[in-house]
């Protein structure tokens, strides 16, 4: 799935294109589950069986767990390539431009998972004919959200981690 990550940047032209509509479930969920007009008394939604899990939404939560995860992630980075004659900035550029994303991504546990959560839409459109059982399973790694119940404007989003993914 990681190979589909760059569809918004055309491979041939390296030219950023605007997608006319949200092309994946993750994007759609962000928009329609807690944005838009609502008459609370008439909301009838069932999330039962969908089991949307939150990905730890905020990269920086001031917690020991987060700090340990960062320390571990940095510790696991393979920086040996940086010791070659090529400097790190050039190296990074080569890696991203050379389409070696899948290689770099594997370096960090969970990275592939989370990135595909955002870009997963590229696949979503292609398999619309799947039965719902499969649909629901694909949704599992994404997120569950909880929005405040008062429906008032300008709320901050709240998300609750339901599973540690460290």
């Amino acid at each position: 799935m990681s190979s589909t990550a760059m569809t918004t940047r055309g491979t041939a032209s390296n030219y950023l294109q605007r997608s006319p509509s949200p092309n994946g479930l993750a994007e759609v969920i962000d928009l329609i589950l807690d944005k838009g007009l609502v008459i609370d008394v008439y909301v009838r939604v069932s999330l039962v069986g969908i089991e949307l899990l939150t990905i730890d939404a905020r990269i920086v939560v001031a917690s020991v767990d987060t700090y340990l995860r960062f320390a571990e992630a940095v510790n696991r980075l393979d920086l040996t390539e940086a010791d070659d004659s090529e400097g790190l900035p050039e190296l990074m550029q080569d890696m991203t431009q050379g389409g070696a994303k899948s290689k770099t991504k594997g370096a960090l546990e969970g990275a592939k998972d989370t990135l595909s959560g955002v870009f997963g839409g590229d696949d979503d459109d292609e398999d619309e004919d799947e039965d719902e059982q499969e649909e629901q399973q694909e949704e599992r790694p994404r997120r569950r959200r909880r929005s405040s119940s008062d429906g008032s404007g300008n709320r901050r989003r709240r998300r609750t981690a339901t599973r540690s993914r460290s």
Binding site: T8, S19, E27, G36, L37, V38, M92, Q93, G151, G153
Partner: peptide, 27 residues
């Protein structure tokens, strides 16, 4: 922003973020 940062650009969308849900009419 350079090649390390990937942009995801989508629209035109309905004004999901800009409808006013704070009015008492929606309470």
């Amino acid at each position: 922003l350079g090649p390390d940062l990937q942009l995801k650009y989508v629209g035109p969308l309905p004004p999901y973020h800009f409808v006013d849900t704070g009015s008492p009419a929606w309470a």
